[in-house]
Design a binder for these strands. Structure first.
Lengths: 221, 221, 221, 221
DNA sequence: AATGAATGAGATTTCATTCAT
DNA sequence: CATGAATGAAATCTCATTCAT
């Protein structure tokens, strides 16, 4: 409704440090209790501020939820865009993206839990600025895959969108499993397996065994 | 000594028809509003029963949520176990499982939405009988993949669990996208693309067309 | 927002007795504490129901406030319309209306306080069904005054709306004073004074003594 | 030992201009939103000061409310006392008071709204210095009416307090109507009608029709 | 003198759930 | 078996107010 000057723009964080602390506390609490079960009081206590202060910084509990990925995802995407050009070859680039993706979640387990168990199921997240960055990040994948198709690293009759869906689906599946069940222990170690499978498929006709040489030399005397 | 059997065991549905109607109504409402925003009153109205009646059949709102997949998943799994033996070859079996998986969600969009957006994020779902059946269904995949490894349809150095994770991840990713964004239009049509990629990988050097060099040097007699 | 069947129509009082008890309690509390300072908890306690029950009957605190005059004003107006035809003469009718008006407030001091100190200042009250009845009641006055103008009981160059405003203003002024200051002790006893003044004015040249005959008999010489 | 004079005595306005601006802003906001719905933040924004500054000038929101009539009512009353002696006749004086009363509200519609819809219903207002001046102003009326009774302009059997109540009630009724409904358009134009009715009543037997018969009988011869 | 920032203190309102009929 | 009615139990969010700078 009508809001005070000081309260009208939650982005105008008076004290960014405090804002970040609140977000961190929220991440922690949400990851453990889920969105509904977590109370603003819980978060306030964890962040060592009053509940009212939280509402000075975020206009609602849901906005606070959506603030969790904002910074993380931005940094992640920026760094990706920065490094990507220096990596030669589409396959290498793809491997890089997958690795970064897994590192992101492995290094931030609370973040991973919040994203996988809470944010992914919230349709309102789609209206979020953070989601827009997720889309940019998805775009990276498409560009890399298309690059690979152009330069003949990848087959030209694949669908980049499906490939990306498979990679993301795999990653999210594993991260979700880890959030819920604690397995697998390490996420980044999946990079190679995922890449290998995506690159080579699972069929037994190994690309490595193509050379059938039957030499029968029947000699002279 | 509980006064009423029905109170103690909500599964002893007095009137299974009505129980099913409630579950169906819940599926509909949960899919549209989400778990929290949906009220028991909403569901009661949709099911044309009183709120109190819902509690005769289900002991809590969450139990009602967990009842949604129960019947569906059981039928699904039973039918899978029934048909699977008649399908020759691991690749064919795998294709069958993926297709069935996608059909399940394509034919039940509300169910799909509830599972993808609500159940997947609820850790309590893991304690559920329905989840146990999900695990059985997952077991199918493993068995089929291992069968393929044994009979040399699939490479012997793959990790069946990772392969399954990739397949499920892909499917869930697409189903979730469809629940949230309405895209892709059809799910079952993904079967072939997924299978092809999983089987053959994406590398340009097709495993099917490697270098077949057949040199037969036949000497003179 | 979306409401349960049982909660959708607050007029469908499940238990009219209880509804009335809540209204009575609200009248009592509002009269003593004012609208804001009164809490729904106060009212619930006084009415011996839970706060939630109040919200089963009335959708908001303000709706509860507006429910206070509803029954009272309706009865009042109905009885007026019923009796009015039996009273001969516009002046008598007017006196009757004024008396009834004062009796209403005198017999219901809490009601009077709520109306004078709370409802009168609430613009939303104007949108209320009760207010519509207030308007009907106001209409009575106009009709009676116009009747008096027609049959020459009242001067034909008065403005019925102003007269009504004067009468209501006077009554409300006195009732408000009584609510705030406890004075005057009795309200109904004002009937005659008000009527007399309205009828005859305050000028010293009494209308009742119009014939001034000055006979001066001056004798001869 | 209070640290700051200004804290202890909010009347010691550091900057009277700013104090007045705050009061004006408050009048504006309160008139539009009502007391509760208006926030100190709203007022601060309108007055272009910070919320904290408002508390430098007024110790509470309610004190700020009560400050609204203070200056206005004082000026009003002083001017009345000043002019009154120069007006000949009680009826003329009364007409003057009524006219001034109406002018006050007509020229200050926000003020009128605040007084009629907010202050009148607030029992705490009675403890206010402003209210004391209102009482003085009321005293004027009594004095004038009693003067009229003494010098036979007014009937000697009227009750001055009732007459004043009628006049004030009428005025307040009309001003309230204007605040709420926007009607009547002009207030001051009511002066004559009110005076006429109060002076002459509404009965058809006009006091203006007395029969002055001067009979002079002159004796014979 | 002025204010940005922080918060204490509640109040309304919502529902899941219970129970008597 | 079904349900109308009642409520316990919170949780979010709002603001007036304070205080350190």
């Amino acid at each position: 409704m009508q809001s005070r000057t000081s309260r009208s723009n939650p982005k105008n964080l008076k004290n960014p440090k405090k804002g970040a602390a609140i977000v961190k506390a929220a991440e922690h609490i949400f990851a453990r209790k889920g969105f509904q079960a977590a109370t603003v009081a819980d978060i306030a206590k964890k962040a060592k501020v009053s509940e009212a202060t939280i509402y000075e910084y975020f206009s609602s509990k849901e906005e606070l939820l959506f603030a969790i990925p904002a910074e993380t995802i931005r940094e992640y995407q920026e760094k990706n865009r920065e490094i990507l050009p220096y990596i030669p070859g589409a396959a290498n680039k793809l491997r890089f993206l997958i690795h970064r993706h897994l590192v992101l979640y492995e290094n931030n387990p609370d973040y991973a839990t919040v994203v996988m168990l809470i944010l992914k199921g919230n349709p309102n997240f789609l209206k979020t600025e953070s989601y827009r960055i997720v889309q940019l990040s998805a775009r990276n994948y498409i560009e890399v895959i298309e690059e690979g198709m152009k330069n003949n690293e990848f087959s030209s009759d694949i669908d980049p969108y499906l490939i990306r869906a498979m990679i993301w689906g795999t990653i999210e599946h594993e991260v979700t499993r880890k959030s819920l069940l604690g397995k697998p222990e390490g996420l980044t170690s999946l990079t190679d397996s995922i890449c290998n499978t995506i690159f080579a498929g699972i069929s037994a006709v190994q690309p490595a065994a193509p050379i059938h040489v039957n030499v029968r030399v029947t000699g002279g005397e």
